[in-house]
Amino acid sequence: MVKDDLLMIPGPVKLHERIIKAMSSQMISHRSRDFEEVFEYCKNAIKPLFGTSGDIAIISGSGTAGMEAAVASFSKVRKITVVDNGKFGERFAKIGAKYTEVDHLRFEWGNSIDLEKVEESLANGSEAIAFVHNETSTGILNPASEIARIARKYNALVIMDGITSVGGDEVKMDEWEIDVAVVGSQKCIGAPPGLAAVAINERAWEFYSESVPYYLDLKAYVKKAESNQTPYTPAVPLFLAFAEALRIIEEEGIENRVERHRKFARATRVWAESAGLELFPALNEHSSYSNTVTAIKMPDGVADKDLRGTLREEYGITISGGQEHLKGKIFRIGHMGNVTKRDLVATLSAIEDILSRKNVVKPALHAAMEELG
């Protein structure tokens, strides 16, 4: 990948020059006052993105490490309901099965969740529920507040994967009564991959399990966070980059950032529909399109390599395809993190050019430009 190549996938995202510079700083001791200041800033700056005043744990590991820490640390339950309507809901189920009994609620990938089935599962004895807020594998936003409201009727623990919504969409963890939520550094926050932050409310500790894995014990992270430290050696350069990414968010303002993501998402959908393309997710009254990635059905007669391969080779732009059984059936445009209007317009224009050669789209860039303003 050369310097001018453009990454338009649902994470990792391209890095702001300030973040690159921060990450390339000289090493500091992870037990120094300098690191403690960085950690303290990160711990406090990320709380408004979660919409919480609760505890924060920051793990040197991927978003999946955060997901497993969230399930494992609070696995003192006999059964957990896991909602699966995409790749990462499926991952939650696989993680949950390692620690307790799972009621795996499977929905066709890209379809909306049936909240009646969620309630039925909880009524049948599940003591916790885990779900993905923003399912990037299919471009659908699941109804977090409604899921949490149902769970509250049964006093169930609520665990939310906010890996691709925190920092790019409205998240109100405390207001929605989400007990545990996870975010990854490389998505909407716009930092490099390698850190996972987990937000935890006070009620969650009632479900704490003493048999938690050693490295993923959230109690250990929260205890050390009181002194602005981590229990084990952290990825120091990633913390420096993470802090700079959070400063950029603070400067932009979280409301402005969420609105920027919304505008880019709307523009992408308007472009797709105006071009004669079909959006992939099947919505109901409880779900909506993702604010951070748009999933579009691959047009008939167009192979994945014809679109994504040509886009990368001719334009140096990378977008995502479908995962597992959706390979070759959809393509996904990420518009999260540090993405700019120019990045989005360049991507849509290039895709339109490639698909127009196949005579499968109508000119539509003007419609996106009108939406972008």
Rank of each mutant, 00 (worst) to 15 (best):
K14S: 14
L307C: 10
E135C: 09
L49D: 04
I189W: 07
A97N: 08
N155Y: 02
F280W: 07
P48F: 14
L348Q: 06
A367N: 05
P192T: 00
V171Q: 10
I317M: 09
K47S: 09
L7N: 13
N85V: 15
G162M: 07
K3R: 14
V345H: 01
I319N: 08
E273H: 02
V183L: 01
N256S: 12
M160W: 05
L157Q: 08
N256T: 05
R78V: 04
H335Y: 06
L240P: 12
W176Q: 07
P143Y: 01
Y41A: 06
A364T: 00
V258T: 11
G334C: 09
Q26W: 08
F331I: 01
P193A: 14
N44D: 15
K47R: 15
G51W: 06
M23L: 10
R257I: 04
L122M: 09
K305Y: 12
N228E: 07
D5Q: 11
F39G: 00
G86S: 13
P231M: 05
F74P: 09
S32L: 04
V77W: 10
P10G: 13
S227H: 06
I330N: 07
Y289G: 06
A204N: 08
A303I: 00
V361Y: 04
G334H: 09
V180Y: 07
F35M: 07
I140H: 05
Q323P: 00
N256W: 00
A130N: 08
D4P: 00
D169V: 06
Q229Y: 00
D353V: 06
P363A: 08
H325E: 14
N155T: 02
P143F: 02
G316W: 11
E255F: 07
M1I: 05
P213Y: 07
A196C: 09
A196P: 07
V360A: 06
A204Q: 05
L240M: 15
D55S: 13
M1Q: 09
F88L: 08
A267M: 09
I159V: 14
T100N: 04
I19M: 11
E127L: 05
S32G: 11
E108G: 01
K79N: 13
N359C: 05
M1A: 13
T347M: 02
F50H: 06
F88K: 03
N338W: 04
A346N: 12
A57C: 01
V2C: 10
Y221H: 13
Y215W: 10
D169S: 15
E90Y: 14
A275E: 01
D179C: 03
F239G: 10
G61A: 05
Y315A: 13
E210P: 01
H133P: 00
S32W: 04
L115E: 10
Y41C: 08
K153L: 12
A22F: 06
G190C: 07
G322V: 05
W205L: 08
N284F: 02
E251A: 11
G96K: 11
M173R: 11
P10Y: 10
S53Y: 11
E177D: 14
F207C: 06
A275K: 02
K358Q: 10
R106D: 13
M160L: 13
E251I: 06
M336N: 13
